[in-house]
Simulated assay, not measured.
Amino acid sequence: MQSKPTTIKEIARILNISPSSVSRGLHDHPSIGAVTREKIKQLAKSLNYEPNKAAILFQKGKTYTIGVILPELSEHFFSIAISAIEDEAMKKNYTVIFAQSHDRYELEVKLVEKMKNQRVDGLLVSISKHTCNFDHFEKVNSFNIPVVFFDRIPPLKNVHYVASGLESATVKAVNYLLKKGHRSIGMINGPGTLYASEERKDGYKQAITFNRLKFDPSLVINCDLTEQGTIDAAEKFLKHKRKPTAIVAFNDYVALFLIKHFKKMNVIDDFDIVSYANLPIISYLDHAPVASVEQYPYLQGQKAVNILLDLIHSPNTENQAYYNTIVDADLIVNETNY
């Protein structure tokens, strides 16, 4: 059996002609006679010759490949976004390379470098929770590789991004709890390095002050989004002088950690919990969040990849306006709680 793919040079050697003549013959160039063209094509077919697509694309200056770097591919939100990215990329004949940072800044930096070395045409990124330096993305831009951020976006002005309207969604969430009669509402927020944490806090503060209540910063606790970090935040609320009766959790995973701990402490019935992401599983829980913010990951992924493809095919990006797209989020009330 033939162990290596047939090359143009091999066809040229057998026919005793130049490799350039073989290439032109395979592409029906008029400079190659009809008889020679036919010999070239027949021999190529008999040897199972296939064009080296990588070399062809390299000559064109494009690889028709985009890179995607996410914190965790296993998270439901990102798995839905991945489906959208793949669907849209497939329509434009693009291949997608996925990588996960596992929420580690150092790994994210390495992955960006690897994507650059793979000569991807563009990058889609949801940053790690520890990322506060963005030099690695500036470096990629200097190689004319456009970057579009989505969901977790950096707190920078001159970037392309697609994100959920978290501030307005948080206003809806807190207003919902206030209408239920809660007057002491806590928030388990994410790390301060995440722009999304600031958006949640701003929405929380806006809803509290609009309803003529005093904003208490001690009721907003940042955590690292781990189970232990959530437990530590929960314990602070249980010991707080203004012990809250409702809690807004950073996402459904934090809410699940919170519910697990409160059940263990036998205080689960003392709290209403609102979260973000609207995972399908929450509707099956005995003590589910009373509501969750739907952030539409498929739509975010769809918009992000289409913006990236537009940037890749833009003839001149020097004066390109920055795409700043916000996807409206909705508060979904969990009817099983009533």
Rank of each mutant, 00 (worst) to 15 (best):
K139S: 15
C223L: 03
I259C: 09
P154Q: 00
K179C: 05
L166Y: 07
R200T: 07
F134R: 09
F150D: 02
I208M: 04
P191N: 00
K236S: 11
H130Y: 08
I221K: 10
S168Y: 13
P154F: 01
G190A: 03
I145V: 13
I145W: 05
A234G: 11
G165E: 13
I188L: 15
T209W: 01
I145E: 01
K157M: 12
I247F: 15
E138P: 08
P155H: 02
V120K: 01
A246L: 09
Q228D: 14
L258H: 02
L123P: 12
E227W: 03
V248N: 08
I153E: 08
V174R: 03
F134L: 03
N211C: 06
F237M: 07
V248S: 08
A249S: 15
K179N: 13
K172E: 14
L213W: 03
K201M: 12
L177S: 03
L123M: 12
E235C: 05
F215K: 07
E167D: 10
K239Y: 14
F257V: 04
P146D: 00
S168W: 08
A173Y: 02
Q228A: 05
V125C: 13
M187N: 15
R152H: 04
F250P: 03
D232F: 04
K139N: 13
F250Y: 13
V248F: 15
D202H: 12
F237W: 14
D224Q: 00
R200S: 11
T170E: 00
L178H: 06
D252P: 13
A249L: 03
K239C: 09
